[in-house]
């Protein structure tokens, strides 16, 4: 019980201190809307094509929302030494990092809801399998958050967190089948696509939207969950190695 008091208060503090700050709220709202607008202007498609773009828009909103905020806040707290206070508290490192990442997972999921709500009003989503779509959104939020955590514990400076995030994020946009099918990628790039977690998340989202998934859902969920475990494990290992010297 005592540990959960700590967990809940770490989460609450982060939500108040970071995620509910006006710049982050506006980022969470504006960013997905800008993506939507950008793709429509660029592609010249009508609103009836919105469901085709929705998986990509939702996934990008999550990816950028979670990795940006988490990697910066953790690096910021580490730099300001307030993270030491958490490391010195009598809760396990696993629970501590789950508390630190929970805020970003919620933030990422809410970010994804912006294009989803927009699409609900602008397009016909009757074909969407919500029972697959929503768990996939949450799992993408978890894997992206853990990727943000992995980035945060791999760098020293706050600015490095942003640049290092882009090292992962931008290739994902093009290689994960968000907007271009993996089949249309040059053959030598395809193995790289399957090494990225978002590929599996995108596959579930596309499948739940129009049944165009390349792999069975169970396999996508399994691989994506595997990425979550691996990223979380290596993040904790890095903390143990680098921060508890």
């Amino acid at each position: 019980m005592k540990k959960w008091i700590a967990f809940w208060n770490i989460l609450l503090k982060d939500v108040r201190s970071y995620y509910l700050k006006p710049p982050n709220i506006s980022w969470g709202l504006l960013f997905p809307l800008v993506w939507i607008t950008m793709f429509f202007i660029r592609s010249g498609m009508g609103m009836d094509k919105l469901p085709d773009l929705l998986p990509g828009l939702a996934a990008l909103s999550i990816l950028f929302g979670t990795t940006s905020v988490l990697s910066v806040t953790v690096t910021f707290e580490k730099k300001g030494r307030s993270f030491e206070r958490l490391l010195l508290s009598p809760i396990s490192l696993e629970l501590l990092m789950l508390a630190k990442t929970s805020g970003a997972i919620i933030f990422g999921t809410i970010n994804a809801l912006v294009p989803i709500f927009a699409a609900m009003f602008l397009a016909d989503l009757s074909a969407l399998n919500w029972y697959i779509f929503i768990p996939a959104i949450v799992l993408i939020a978890i894997s992206s958050t853990f990727l943000g955590l992995f980035i945060a514990v791999s760098v020293k400076e706050v600015f490095e967190a942003q640049t290092f995030s882009n090292f992962f994020r931008f290739p994902m946009i093009f290689l994960c089948g968000l907007f271009f099918p993996i089949a249309s990628l040059p053959i030598f790039l395809r193995p790289l696509s399957y090494a990225l977690p978002l590929t599996y998340g995108t596959d579930i989202l596309h499948g739940s939207m129009n049944g165009s998934n390349l792999m069975p859902f169970w396999m996508d969920f399994l691989v994506l969950s595997g990425f979550c475990v691996v990223l979380f494990y290596f993040s904790l290992r890095n903390i143990n190695k680098k921060w508890i010297t």
Binding site: I5, A6, N9, I10, K13, S82, E84, R85
Partner: peptide, 26 residues
């Protein structure tokens, strides 16, 4: 610690309450 490591964005009261919560105090 040798350098104050509390949260700059929190008030004095909130900082203390938060630190207490880390030890499971209600």
């Amino acid at each position: 610690p040798d350098e104050s490591n509390l949260y700059p964005e929190l008030s004095g009261f909130d900082n203390l309450c938060f630190c207490a919560s880390l030890y499971g105090i209600r």
